[in-house]
Computed example of a mutant assay.
Amino acid sequence: MDMPVLENARTAGHLSGRVAVVTGSTSGIGLGIARALAGAGADVVLNGLGDRRDIDRACEDLSNESGVKVIFDDANLADPVEARNLIVRSVWKFGKVDILVNNAGVQHVNQIENFPDEKWDTIIALNLSAAFHTIKASFGAMKANNFGRIINVASAHGLVASPFKSAYVAAKHGVIGLTKTVALEGAEFGVTCNAICPGYVWTPLVENQIDSTAMARGLTREEVIRDVLLAAQPTKRFAETEEIAALAVFLASDSGKSITGAALPIDGGWTAH
């Protein structure tokens, strides 16, 4: 993250003394959010997939950059017990969870008549059900503490649909419904819940989509980027992880206390159509 963005995150956040759990945070958007939260003063629990040496290095780098505690938990969020235990272990380590960012996700692109059942189940489990389980495990304590910030990373696909993404679109629409319900339940207890809805952000997940979309539609990579991925984004550019992270820090701060139940697009105008 460049220094102006990091300084903005620090100024907006004032998150010293807060503890944040960020799922799917070993790369891409999740890692960007974790870095910004750490830069704003929060201790952070990373979670996700990847080479353990790279993950340990990321924890060390974030801690050195920001002066906060950063640890890693390898919970498999497709397993409801593990999803809940991620919160339990985080509380055991830090004493509380103030900020929960549900970012973990997976994608598969295929025609619905050929969509593998196991892919559907995995996408729903990781993109939607995992958020339910982590929220359920942390919500009671947040209410008791009269403070909580739950941020669900949904997608523009939580607001509009695209072909060949039945499971992902269904899951992300579900995340927004979950967000609204949790916001209403937490409103009188100082607990907010919001969804960030990115358009296309240049991440490993999007990079992996390019080839699968090209195969599904019979297009070249360049055609997928121009005519599929960025076709709906009037800005004709990929969003950057730092943009998503800056909004997450704002929502996690005291400045975001009156924003709850919102689905906030960062999509270059995609859903303005």
Rank of each mutant, 00 (worst) to 15 (best):
N103C: 11
A125T: 06
E118N: 11
V70M: 09
G105C: 03
K96I: 02
D98A: 06
I124W: 00
F115N: 10
K69F: 04
N103H: 02
V109R: 04
P116C: 00
P80S: 07
D79S: 14
R52V: 08
V81H: 11
L128W: 02
V81D: 12
L77Y: 05
G105V: 01
E65S: 14
S66F: 15
T122P: 02
G67L: 15
S66N: 14
L62A: 15
D51S: 14
N85E: 05
A131K: 00
V101M: 03
R57K: 12
E113C: 04
I87A: 08
E113M: 08
D54S: 13
F72Q: 05
G50R: 15
H108L: 08
N102W: 00
R57I: 05
E60F: 01
E113T: 08
D61H: 10
L77V: 03
S63T: 10
S129C: 08
N76K: 06
D56Y: 05
D74W: 14
N114E: 09
S129K: 14
I112E: 05
P116N: 03
N85D: 05
G50I: 15
G50F: 15
E113W: 13
R57Y: 13
A104M: 02
G105M: 02
E65N: 13
L128Q: 02
V109G: 12
S63E: 11
R57A: 07
I99E: 03
S129I: 02
P116A: 00
I112C: 05
T122W: 01
I71H: 14
N103D: 07
V91E: 12
N127C: 09
C59Q: 14
S63Y: 03
K96M: 02
D98F: 08
H108Y: 09
N85F: 01
N114F: 04
C59E: 10
C59N: 11
P116I: 00
R84A: 14
A130E: 05
G95L: 00
D121Q: 09
D74R: 13
I99C: 08
G95C: 01
C59Y: 06
F94H: 04
R57W: 15
N102C: 06
V101T: 06
R53D: 12
V81M: 11
A75K: 04
D79G: 10
A58M: 13
I99P: 15
N110C: 11
I71A: 15
E113Q: 11
N114D: 08
L49K: 10
S90N: 04
E113F: 10
D74T: 09
I55K: 12
A125F: 01
A104H: 00
F72T: 11
E82G: 07
F72P: 15
L100E: 07
I99H: 07
V91I: 04
L77M: 06
V106T: 04
H108I: 04
N103A: 09
D54M: 12
I124E: 00
R52H: 06
V109N: 12
V101C: 08
C59W: 05
N114I: 05
D74P: 15
